[in-house]
Design a protein around this nucleic acid. Sequence first.
DNA 1: TCTGGGGTCCTAGGACCC
DNA 2: TCTGGGGTCCTAGGACCC
Length: 423
Amino acid sequence: MSAIFALVDCNNFYASCEKLFRPDLANTPVVVLSNNDGCVVARSKEAKALGIKMGIPIFKIQSQIRQHGIKVFSSNYSLYADMSDRVMRTLEDMAPRVEIYSIDEAFLDLTGIQSAISLIDFGQQVKHTIDRWIGITVCVGIAPTKTLAKLANHAAKKYSATRGVVDLTDRNRQRKLLALTPVEDIWGVGRRLSARLQAMGIHTALDLADTSAKSIRQHFSVVLERTVRELNGESCMDLEQIPATKKQIICSRSFGTRVTSLVQMRQAVCEHITRAAEKLRKERQQAKLLSVFIRTSSYQKDSPQYSNALSAELTRPSDDTRDLIQLAMRLLDHLWRDGYQYAKAGVVLSDFYDIGTYQAGLFDEPTGHANSRQLMQVVDTINHSGRGKVFFARQGIKKSWAMKREYLSPAYTTHWNGLIKVN
DNA sequence: TCTGGGGTCCTAGGACCC
DNA sequence: TCTGGGGTCCTAGGACCC
């Protein structure tokens, strides 16, 4: 039996989440900003209609915001993650095999489902259920490969006559849609590849599908070869239900205001390490390799630039925040140069081991904190209870450099004090 | 003044070995 | 000291995704 995939994708997800709790904004254009309130990362359909572009820095659209009364929100990740969980749980109730692909999309395995229900009817059922239970609008694309399912979803969003569901299992419909699709709209073809393909006379998705996989392999890579095969209905990517364990954890941020002192920089790096260590423990892994990087802003062309990174190994893998902070501070002291206006810092953890599996070398010091596991568990528990925070002294208390979030919505679903009052 | 953050995979090239 | 092929491992960088 040949495979059938569905891609379910939430429309304007972050903007939709913000609108859910503000019925007064039903027809108002809404945009959601990136961390630090830098640029636009989500737009409601009204904002799209006004021509607000994805990724545009907010300072470039201030006049439009005033003129059209666009409502602006800082990103509120705990809200979006919570809404995402609800959507995904609903999908898992409706389909036996689900791959959560990103915060707002999931692939479903619909293989064999046609004997019970038509694919279009199933898609409409998914759409209606999520709309009624959660209030989020989704579109559904159905096809024999993931790449075609992505394309079908794209069409479902673009053409309102589809009522949000497209069945692209038919070969002739596939080719018709491919002919209408610019090559850069294909999943896996970004700006660079698109430019090279155009130069070779490959302009539409159909042009790409009709190029021999072998020659694409020669000119590009196995990745694009797979895309060509998938466009022709040959499934090369399976559904991945179990998320792979992470190979690295990155925590980095641009600063709300530029950092010029080592003391502030230490605080910031300390905070990144703390978050990274939390993620590491959640993955139930220990890291052996740690990198720290700091940099000035490449947008400020007239001021002096400095960007550097350093890595080092811990004597043994650890998930103890204190070990990681200690090493990170040593690295930072080597990296640091006075006299620059730093815009961003970050840390990367890698070279992971399952807890307890690392074979210590003969001459490794038998270090490690005796109470590490218990202490870290207590810290994690308190920090997730909403009762306040335990933090490491070096994170600092007055964070002049902290992220800007001027337009944050309340925590409607995750904190008691954010609950909507019904009178 | 103001331009995100967090990931993955692949490839080319250097170091090193036999 | 020269000459050569072939293999592995590692890293940096490029490209993509949301």
